[in-house]
Design a protein around this nucleic acid. Structure first.
Lengths: 213, 213
DNA sequence: ACCTGAACACCGTTCAAGT
DNA sequence: ACCTGAACACCGTTCAAGT
């Protein structure tokens, strides 16, 4: 039977599906061609090389994310809500994070949140350079946290794990550690990322919005 | 002339040098063999496959980093000094960051700082789970920041850049943006990472050490 | 304008064979 | 115990040739 002619959008859609299922590493030009039922070289005609294909994919997904609306009553809560929503949007697209990070486009991930953050920070009374600092601090904190978190999930068993370091509080290696069994126990357990994230963003934001001393 | 027999350490040293110079991507088994003047397959005998070679490299560099000693008089300053030192250590090994991140071993980067942070947080009066939260918040913040920062450096020209978004404060896209020319100007300029980092860590730490309300 | 196969220059890895 | 070349199964990309 006759195939309908290949389009750029078709290529992008197939590529996006491959990445979504098995990550960026699974996206090979040859595999993509097989998926589409065409020759490898046709892809080059439609989207250029692999580099440009990934660029297009990133662009597509980021615009797809759209704007973010704050919720909550206090300024701190509204800013935290933006960060939280940002984290959820990113985590809903785990491979996008890898893709964007690999390609040095982390800044792209900021955009959906930046306008909302600017608005909230201004509403909270910050102005000028100080407001810009606050916006950026929250942005870096949020995206950085998601990067660390995602990375951590990818290799559950680390050696030596934090757990090992603190599981035996009286081992020689931790001679300088204070005697606080509850602390040792807490560090031996894996962290709850959601809780840690909210706690961190809230702490940072409260400080940033506090009047200068 | 006769070559001295190849050793595992020799292989690791050559691999480390390649990575240091041109990044992890430049480390190919064939290139490494050429550098060492041996057959590709000899490398497999000494260090296993590429995966294991990279593992060994990460391990080697992280232990090389060593412990971190806090400086400063107040608890906040001492904790900030650990974070700052951590950032410098990581930035002195830019390719290590990429290597560790790619391999999902971000937690490894925490270790040099964790003991110092535990000690300082405890000295500041935090106990148990709350102390553990503070340690982890600072760890995530620090490593996350460095990841974002490094990534940002790798692609200086982003499109659309933050600059474009805020350079024309009355453009339709920024209709919801408050009228604050100084803020717009600050966001149009690239951030000063060193300053932003210190500001962020200090803000976070002050909040974490403040008495619960 | 769109698609094709052949070819090039790379990869990591395995394996049987050498000493 | 250590090293080797040949071979396998992959890559991304280019290019001349087709319709």
């Amino acid at each position: 039977m006759t195939r309908s002619p290949l389009t750029r959008d078709e290529v992008l859609a197939a590529a996006a599906s491959l990445v979504k299922q098995h990550g960026p590493g699974a996206l090979t030009m040859r595999g993509l061609a097989a998926e589409l039922g065409t020759a490898v070289t046709s892809i080059y005609w439609h989207v250029g090389n692999r580099e440009q294909l990934l660029d297009a994919l990133v662009e597509r997904t980021v615009t797809e994310m759209g704007a973010i609306r704050p919720t909550g009553r206090t300024p701190v809560e509204r800013i935290v809500s933006v960060a939280r929503r940002m984290r959820h949007e990113l985590r809903a697209r785990p491979h996008l994070i890898a893709l964007v990070h690999e390609r040095g486009l982390t800044e792209r991930m900021f955009l959906p949140a930046q306008q909302a953050l600017v608005h909230e920070v201004h509403a909270a009374g910050l102005r000028g350079a100080r407001a810009a600092d606050a916006v950026r601090a929250v942005q870096f904190q949020t995206v950085g946290f998601v990067l660390v978190e995602r990375n951590r999930e990818r290799s559950p068993a680390q050696s030596p794990a934090e757990g090992e370091l603190w599981a035996h509080p009286h081992a020689p290696a931790s001679a300088s550690a204070p005697d606080d069994p509850a602390l040792a126990r807490a560090l031996a357990r894996p962290p709850d990322p959601e809780r840690l994230f909210l706690l961190s963003v809230r702490a940072l934001t409260e400080s940033l919005l506090a009047p200068p001393r």
